[in-house]
C-alpha cells in the first residue's frame, strides 16, 4: 500500500509533464490535422531556456527558489513560443495544402533540425542543474519505507492544474478560443465567416509551445538534467498520451497524459524500468488498433 501510494504520486507528477506536452499535439492535430513531430523539440528548447535562465540568475546571486522559478517560467514562456511560431510560419504554413505525408515528413525533418541545432549551439553533453526545491512531506511510513510527497511534486501538480484551468478558460471563453474551436470544426467555413485562419493556427502553435515550455521547466526542475535528446522520448510519449485520450480532445490529452504517467510509474515499479517505454508504446499500439478514437475522442473522427 505504501509502495503503491508512492508510485501513484510519482505517476501523477510524470503524467502532469506528459499532459502539458500532449495538449500541444492535440490542439495542432485538431485544427490542421497534422502531427507536429517537432513539438517534443520545443519542449526540449523550453528546458534549455529554463536552465540558461537559472544559471544566469545564479551568476547574479539570485538563488531564492520561488523568485528564480518565476523568472524562469516567464523567460521560457516568452522565448520558447517564438520557436513554435517560427516553426509554423517557416515549415508548416507553406505546406498546408500539400499532401499529408509532406507535412508529416517536414515535421520529422524540423524535429531532427532542432535537435541538431541545440546540439550544435549547446553541446551534446548532459547539463546538470542543482535542485532548487528539496524536501517534502512524509505522508505515511511502514518500517524503513517512507512515502514522501515532495514539495517539487506539489509545485508541479499545482502549476499544471493552474495552467490547464487557465488554458481551458481561454479556449472556452475568449474570442481566440472561439476562433480555434471554429477552425477545428471546419477550416474553410471558419475562414468564410471571417475567422483569420492563419492567425488562429499561429496562435495555436504559440500556445502549445508555451505549455510545452512549462513542461520543459518542470522536467528540468524534477530531474535536474537536460540534454538535446530529451525531446524525442518525451514527445513520443506525450503523443501517445494524446492518442490515448483521443486526439483532438483537450480533456482527453490531460487524461491521457495522466494515464501514461501512471502506466510508466507502475510498470517501472512492479515490472522493469528498462521496458517502461515498451509498455507505453504497447498501449499506443493497442489503443490505435482497437479504439483509434481514443478514450474521449469524438466517434466520427476521420479514419482514413
Amino acid at each position: 500500500m505504501e509502495y503503491f501510494t508512492q508510485q501513484l504520486i510519482n505517476g501523477v507528477t510524470l503524467g502532469a509533464i506528459y499532459a502539458l506536452i500532449a495538449i500541444g499535439y492535440t490542439m495542432v492535430y485538431g485544427i490542421i490535422g497534422m502531427i507536429n513531430f517537432a513539438h517534443g523539440e520545443v519542449f526540449m528548447i523550453g528546458a534549455f531556456i529554463s536552465i540558461i535562465t537559472f544559471l544566469l540568475l545564479g551568476l547574479f546571486g539570485i538563488t531564492w527558489a520561488p523568485f528564480a522559478i518565476l523568472v524562469a517560467l516567464l523567460a521560457t514562456m516568452a522565448l520558447t513560443p517564438l520557436y513554435g511560431w517560427a516553426l509554423e510560419r517557416l515549415a508548416y504554413r507553406p505546406l498546408r495544402h500539400s499532401p499529408r505525408l509532406a507535412a508529416l515528413i517536414t515535421a520529422i525533418g524540423m524535429s531532427i533540425f532542432l535537435q541538431n541545432y541545440v546540439q550544435l549551439v549547446q553541446g551534446a553533453r548532459i547539463k546538470p542543474l542543482q535542485s532548487l526545491v528539496t524536501g517534502g512531506i512524509e505522508i505515511m511510513q511502514r518500517g524503513d519505507f517512507v512515502v514522501t510527497l515532495g514539495y517539487m511534486q506539489i509545485l508541479i501538480v499545482v502549476l499544471t492544474v493552474v495552467l490547464m484551468a487557465a488554458f481551458t478558460l481561454l479556449i472556452q471563453r475568449t474570442a481566440l478560443g472561439r476562433a480555434q474551436r471554429a477552425c477545428e470544426q471546419d477550416l474553410k467555413m471558419a475562414a468564410l465567416v471571417g475567422v483569420d485562419v492563419d492567425r488562429t493556427i499561429a496562435a495555436t502553435f504559440v500556445m502549445g509551445a508555451a505549455l510545452a515550455s512549462v513542461a520543459g521547466l518542470i522536467f528540468l526542475l524534477y530531474y535536474g538534467v537536460v540534454d538535446f535528446f530529451i525531446g524525442f522520448n518525451a514527445g513520443i510519449k506525450a503523443f501517445t498520451a494524446a492518442v490515448l485520450g483521443g486526439i483532438g480532445s483537450l480533456p482527453g490529452a490531460m487524461l491521457g497524459g495522466l494515464l501514461i504517467g501512471l502506466i510508466e510509474a507502475f510498470w517501472s515499479a512492479y515490472f522493469s524500468v528498462e521496458y517502461k517505454d515498451v509498455a507505453a508504446f504497447t498501449v499506443l499500439v493497442m489503443v490505435l488498433i482497437f479504439r483509434p478514437t481514443g478514450l474521449l475522442g469524438k466517434p466520427d473522427i476521420e479514419k482514413v
Binding site: 528548447i45 534549455f48 531556456i49 536552465i51 540558461i52 535562465t53 544559471l55 544566469l56 523567460a75 522565448l79 517564438l82 520557436y83 517560427a86 541545432y117 541545440v118 549551439v121 549547446q122 553541446g123 553533453r125 548532459i126 547539463k127
Partner: peptide, 13 residues
C-alpha cells in the same frame, strides 16, 4: 528572439 538565449548563452559542461 530565437537566438538570444540558445545561441547567445552556452551552458558549459
Amino acid at each position: 528572439g530565437l537566438a538570444a538565449a540558445l545561441v547567445g548563452v552556452r551552458v558549459q559542461d
